[in-house]
Design a protein around this nucleic acid. Structure first.
Lengths: 211, 211
DNA sequence: ATTATCTATAGATCTATAGATAATGC
DNA sequence: ATTATCTATAGATCTATAGATAATGC
């Protein structure tokens, strides 16, 4: 193997292991020793490439916040569609994103809670996107409600509703599996049902029909 | 001071400090040294009264799960009222409980995630109560919908909706303060508005009018 | 006598680095 | 020559306990 290949390998291996460990256990719970072990490299390598646990963590956090930004940005894209379709796509897209990154909400809430300084990054990366999504949605709601097509509601509340409803099944995963274990056939069936239900709840609130 | 008084004092002081620290930082993040310091007792006292960090933690966790159980049980009590009032009271009661224990949801999710063994306690303490709440609500919905008073919906979904919507503002507290900081006058005003909104969302879904 | 408290410290774990050695590219 | 990797270990932090001392109740 040539150098470039080797270098990238260990660095990437550490990043992968770090992502998993940080998302699973949070900053304090994660240990650089176990990250190195999981990555299959010696512990010194971790510090060789990233100097400190903190720097490694910041890299992971920034990555995750970027991902969070992307999904929000994606929602703004579909401006051409009618309100109803935009909502359905936006809600289902958000749900699927969380389903693909089920540990992300807890991770973000935890780390922002324990170290509010990290909010600075969020303030500049996430807040503007959230504002764009909300303004965009509010304009569409205003227009539709003026034409009697739907109720007039606060877009901030709708966005909060969507996020609340979509992240819960993943945050409460162990609780739901236990409490509702006998009440649903399988986790997959439950999640599919829940996604549809969340779409319905929002459309219902706006008095937009669903098929 | 007599012995009994002294004994209770330190023990209670440790418990108070431990509750705060565990809820704030979780099991791994909390340190017995800082708990002792916060309680204003020597570190050895903590181990004298509780032997291990684990035993102290279990005491706090059991306490919190009991509280969680109480609020759920409270909801079942108001069977005499019509469905609409039961829902309003149930939702607002739950919201107020979370507002009074804002760190509880994150704590429960985190600890159950990191150590699923603790689910055993939940399985026996919480699951039966949740089932009772749901069965109770489903019966009321069935009856009301049969008489054309409301839509027929799955009570499990309604309960999940309520919990999702009510806990979010507290889980995402730092995020909301930052992202919506400029969009609401104060945190109190926001929470009050959000509580009403959540009631409205649920009543809406059932097509039960709100005043 | 028993219970509560303190000081001191053992032993484990964890982050970080120093310094030696091996691999790679010029 | 430079970059990557390894071994060994310093230094900090944390849980837990041992053993001495003070307070309390009989």
């Amino acid at each position: 193997m040539d150098r470039a290949n080797n270098q990238r390998d260990t660095e990437a291996l550490i990043l992968q292991a770090a992502e998993r460990e940080f998302l699973e256990k949070g900053y304090t719970g994660a240990k650089t020793t176990s990250i190195a072990e999981a990555a299959g490299v010696t512990h010194a390598m971790l510090h060789y490439y990233f100097r400190t646990k903190d720097k490694l963590f910041e890299k992971i956090l920034a990555d995750k916040l970027d991902k969070l930004g992307e999904i929000m940005f994606g929602v703004i894209g579909n401006t051409g569609l009618p309100l109803r379709e935009r909502l359905v796509q936006g809600i289902e897209g958000h749900f699927d994103f969380i389903a693909a990154n089920p540990l992300l909400p807890r991770f973000v809430f935890n780390e922002l809670h324990s170290l509010p300084d990290r909010l600075e990054a969020v303030k500049y990366k996430i807040a503007p996107l959230a504002k764009a999504v909300i303004d965009n949605l509010q304009a569409a709601i205003d227009e539709n409600s003026r034409r009697g097509k739907c109720r007039h509601v606060d877009a901030r509340m709708i966005v909060m509703d969507i996020v609340s409803l979509n992240i819960f099944p993943f945050l409460a995963n162990p609780l739901i599996s236990t409490t509702f274990g006998t009440l649903f056939e399988s986790r997959e069936a439950f999640l599919k049902m829940r996604k549809k239900e969340n779409v319905r709840t929002i459309l219902d609130k706006l008095r937009l029909d669903y098929e």
